[in-house]
Design a binder for these strands. Sequence first.
DNA 1: CTTGAAAAATTACGCATGTAATTCTTTCGA
DNA 2: TCGAAAGAATTACATGCGTAATTTTTCAAG
Lengths: 125, 125
Amino acid sequence: MRISDAESVVMEALWASHPRSAQDIIDEVAGPNDWSAVTVRSLLSRLMNKGAVSAVRDGRKYLYSPLVARDEYVHEASQNLIDRLFDGQLAPLVSHLSERQALSTDDIRALKQLIRTLPGGDQDD
Amino acid sequence: MRISDAESVVMEALWASHPRSAQDIIDEVAGPNDWSAVTVRSLLSRLMNKGAVSAVRDGRKYLYSPLVARDEYVHEASQNLIDRLFDGQLAPLVSHLSERQALSTDDIRALKQLIRTLPGGDQDD
DNA sequence: CTTGAAAAATTACGCATGTAATTCTTTCGA
DNA sequence: TCGAAAGAATTACATGCGTAATTTTTCAAG
């Protein structure tokens, strides 16, 4: 199930809160993305076709919900990037980012903190 | 400069070694990807149009070289993913991967090792 | 000098995507 | 009850991409 960039904007809105109406989603994403209302509806309809969202009728409108978990989507995208560009390993990615000065001190702090909670790899060299 | 998936296969071949002839690249990537020779040439020609590769004539053929650095490409892709899915921060990505058991012990070890070399963030809480 | 094969350039074509306009359907208010 | 507006469904259309066939150019061998 491939979710395109534009579609993922709609998915993010749904992951943030659901079920919600098309109008509701339009109100949230159309402006910032410079999209017309129909464009957002098109994206919703494509997502329906792909089976990425579900909809239940509510009077004259539909209320939409995501059918794929954000976690799935995120994982697939992350793993794919790491596999394609970093030989499937995380350390080279981190190394790359640090070389590119793409890590804030906050980021580094959070990382060090997090790393401590990870199991294994406790040898001291 | 957007480099597509198929194009990136050709770029990887060029990043690995250059300059090289079209035939040389075909020999390397056509088989594994089930591509015909002309397909690879098409990709090369699109990359030329985009200005992603350069070519110098060598007798009756061209020798191609990358014009964009792999590092650029990798950085753009990584930063883009982190921005879109992890609010621009690395720690949430690492956290996600660890929760999904996507980190091998080797990976964790390498990560701990690497983290030590990072500047700052040395406070102990 | 001619010609044929290798290489390059051009063209093709179906599908996905970004972005919408148009048309159909339903329902609520006059 | 009827028509207009909201909403949904269908259709559109340019561009990019994956994948290639066709055409043109060029060199090298006869």
